[in-house]
Simulated scan of single mutants.
Amino acid sequence: MAQQVRGVIARAKGEPVRIETIVVPDPGPGEAVVKIQACGVCHTDLHYREGGINDEFPFLLGHEAAGIVEAVGDDVTEVAPGDFVILNWRAVCGQCRACLRGRPQYCFDTHNAKQKMTLLDGTELSPALGIGAFAEKTLVAAGQCTKVDPEASPAAAGLLGCGVMAGLGAAINTGNVGRGDSVAVIGCGGVGAAAVTGAHLAGVSKIIAIDIDDKKLATAKELGATHTVNSRSTDPVEAVRELTGGFGADVVIEAVGRPETYKQAFYARDLAGTVVLVGVPTPDMRLELPLIDVFGRGGALKSSWYGDCLPARDFPMLIDLYRQGRLDLDAFVTETIALEDVEKAFERMHHGDVLRSVVVF
């Protein structure tokens, strides 16, 4: 029987979000209903509200979430009612050319629930990243549920569902950072801070955090950065070279998503070094680089999709590290808030004084 729950809805571009009653249908084949325990407020949710993703309003916002599986549909084997899960937005198909080549982290045909959640009047909702977790319950594809240790804090665990995984994965999976490497991270918001954490977790010897905000740099230092650079007052390219013997960093992670900072990343890397773009640009942005410099510096220019993660592999492993005290996910939870406070959390995000506000149910 369909259920009625409260959820955070973005009705139109730029309008403040509102709490409305939504209808969650019973799960169909391959689907699951999840009772949400916690959901992080990610910048992507703000992009949806501002029309920066698409114009398929109204949106049911929220996607960095953890909760308990309440019910599953036919043919579901991945999870069962009662499982504690982290939600992901890339349920792999198992059949596309990437999956068949043994690279499911690059699945080209990821999917979501087939049924739609609606408002009371029947208006279909577009769930953010196919999840829609600023709600007491949500409907997802069962493959979007990853079972993890139920002793983990939901507020911390849910952050692996997007931003923290994107940053950790940009360092560990995409950048393949390791012992003896030098790594620079440009932009130390939630994703960049997670990239610093990932580099530290991998045993990187020199981690250079770059931002224009001293508070974010201080947090990056706490998470493992060995050096910090305020690029408002210091040329970051020259600073990185000075800190790496004049050569540049082995891996530079760009967590801002702007042409200006991408160029900084490009020129701050060593010869044959790697640039990883994990910051999300807008569709209108353009990048211009001398082609001879692209050729002459060698190395690799990579984009990181969701930290190139495979949720079934990475989420349980990272939660185990968290439970062992080796990965401080709690450090990313700046504040816990109620569902009614999401709009205020967007305002705080603009001021840059939070890593994550987390809605706790």
Rank of each mutant, 00 (worst) to 15 (best):
R11L: 13
E15M: 12
R18M: 14
R18W: 05
T21W: 10
V23W: 07
A32Y: 01
A38C: 08
D45H: 06
H47V: 08
I53T: 03
E56Y: 13
A65V: 02
G73T: 06
E78S: 10
R90A: 13
R90N: 15
G94R: 05
C99I: 03
C99V: 01
G102N: 09
R103Y: 15
Q115Y: 14
T118V: 07
L119Y: 07
P127W: 14
I131C: 11
F134H: 08
A135F: 04
K137S: 09
E151N: 12
A152V: 07
A155S: 12
A156R: 09
A156I: 12
L159Q: 04
G161E: 01
C162W: 05
C162Y: 05
G163N: 04
A171G: 02
G175E: 00
V177A: 02
G178E: 00
S182A: 10
S182W: 00
G187M: 09
G187T: 04
G192D: 11
V196I: 15
A199W: 01
L201D: 00
V204M: 00
T234S: 04
E238Y: 01
A239M: 02
G248Q: 09
G257W: 02
R258C: 01
E260D: 13
Q264S: 13
A265P: 03
L271F: 03
V276K: 01
V276I: 10
L289T: 11
P290H: 14
I292N: 11
I292L: 12
V294D: 06
S303D: 10
W305N: 12
G307C: 06
G307Q: 05
G307P: 00
R313G: 00
F315V: 01
D320A: 07
L321T: 04
E335V: 15
T336K: 13
A338G: 15
F346P: 06
R348W: 12
D353C: 05
S357W: 12
S357E: 14
F361S: 04
